[in-house]
């Protein structure tokens, strides 16, 4: 009981390593493997050739079979390390395989043919990060088009979200006007209304507004995020009103106050919202999937899903494209993880 208790309450550990500390480190290390392992496995797999990918059991690192080109043979030939009957070990090239016997020759001395049982030979391989999947994937997958769409939607969507949400947050935090509380509660309660609940009518609205199959249709509707309004409003409440009044006495218009006083002072909150918004937009699937049916407008997520639900699933290309899709968000995370984690911890929202 006391061990369990120590384990549960200990926030400032003692000098010596307690058994609970060791248990904690074991848990965290296992956790690291479980959380990163699958991603790392995918990344490693994306560098393998199709032949290597279909091998079982699979290996962690990507390997390449050593090959040489010999005169008289059209294809490059695989090199094997062979233990000969007299015990010597030689690097030989396989020219032909008949059942369990391989015909092998020494590249130095191509005339002599060794007949080797296949269990006596080991493929000569080296670690090799093969980029063919990326090359082929980018060309056959229309990657640049999807990337372009994703970037446009992410950038313009985020800019629009920041402008629209900060204006609303400014009004809701710095003015007293009829209907203010009602509007605020209305917007916040929308957090409870997920897109999935209004699929049919929202599709109609998009159709009537002629926004189906347009990038604007991806950018505009998702801009009025309740999370963003909430986050910015809470932050702007902490800006002293006296500052605004002083500016008014100096003759600044309300717009100028918003743009030149409130916005610069809200930079930390705006930064958090920017990171959130980039994450939402980049990863969004359901909304673009619903309103886009033309391939040239697909975002990366929709493109990837279409590509993977294709009947002739080409894993080697999908793996490479998945890595390219998760790369930008991983880089953003690596640099801005502090913003993200504090943002979530303070708002309780994602």
């Amino acid at each position: 009981m006391t061990t369990a208790g120590k384990f549960l309450t200990n926030t400032r550990g003692g000098k010596r390593l307690h058994i609970t500390d060791i248990l904690s480190y074991i848990y965290l290390s296992l956790g690291t493997i479980v959380m990163f392992g699958p991603v790392l496995w995918l990344v490693m797999s994306s560098f393998k050739t199709s032949g290597e990918l279909s091998k079982f059991p699979p290996r962690f690192l990507p390997y390449k079979q050593e090959q040489v080109v010999l005169e008289g043979f059209d294809e490059p030939l695989d090199v094997y390390q062979v233990t000969l009957e007299d015990g010597t070990v030689k690097n030989l090239v396989q020219t032909k395989r008949i059942g369990l016997i391989a015909n092998m020759i020494d590249p130095e001395n191509p005339d002599e043919v060794f007949k080797v049982p296949i269990e006596d030979r080991v493929a000569l391989e080296s670690i090799n990060f093969n980029l063919d999947n990326y090359r082929e994937g980018i060309s056959s997958f229309n990657f640049s088009r999807y990337l372009r769409n994703s970037v446009i939607v992410t950038v313009l969507g985020t800019v629009l979200t920041l402008i629209v949400n900060s204006m609303a947050a400014f009004a809701l935090s710095k003015y007293k006007f009829t209907g203010r509380d009602f509007i605020f509660i209305l917007m916040i309660s929308a957090l409870m209304v997920p897109l999935s609940v209004i699929l049919v009518p929202v599709f109609l609205v998009m159709q009537k507004a002629q926004l189906l199959n347009t990038l604007s249709g991806l950018i505009i509707p998702a801009a009025a995020t309740p999370t963003g309004v909430f986050l910015l409003r809470q932050y702007m409440l902490t800006i002293p009103d006296e500052l605004l009044d002083a500016a008014r006495i100096d003759g600044a218009s309300e717009w100028r106050i918003y743009q030149q006083i409130v916005m610069p002072l809200s930079r930390p909150a705006l930064a958090v919202l920017t990171v959130f918004s980039v994450m939402w937009r980049w990863n969004d699937f359901l909304w673009p999937f619903l309103i886009l049916s033309r391939n040239e407008l697909f975002t990366l997520q929709v493109g990837l899903q279409t590509f993977q639900s294709d009947l002739t699933i080409q894993w080697n290309l999908i793996l490479a494209m998945t890595v390219l899709t998760l790369l930008p968000i991983t880089i953003v995370f690596a640099f801005l993880q502090k913003y993200i984690t504090t943002g979530i911890a303070t708002t309780g929202l994602k």
Binding site: P38, V39, K55, Q305, Q308, W315
Partner: peptide, 27 residues
């Protein structure tokens, strides 16, 4: 460690599904 556990949250649902599909497939 905090970042480690948080990292998958940032991945898109499609990417998460593909990662798991890949490690669970036949080979």
């Amino acid at each position: 460690f905090r970042s480690v556990f948080f990292y998958p949250v940032l991945l898109s649902p499609i990417v998460v599904a593909l990662i798991w599909k890949w490690i669970l497939q036949e080979n």
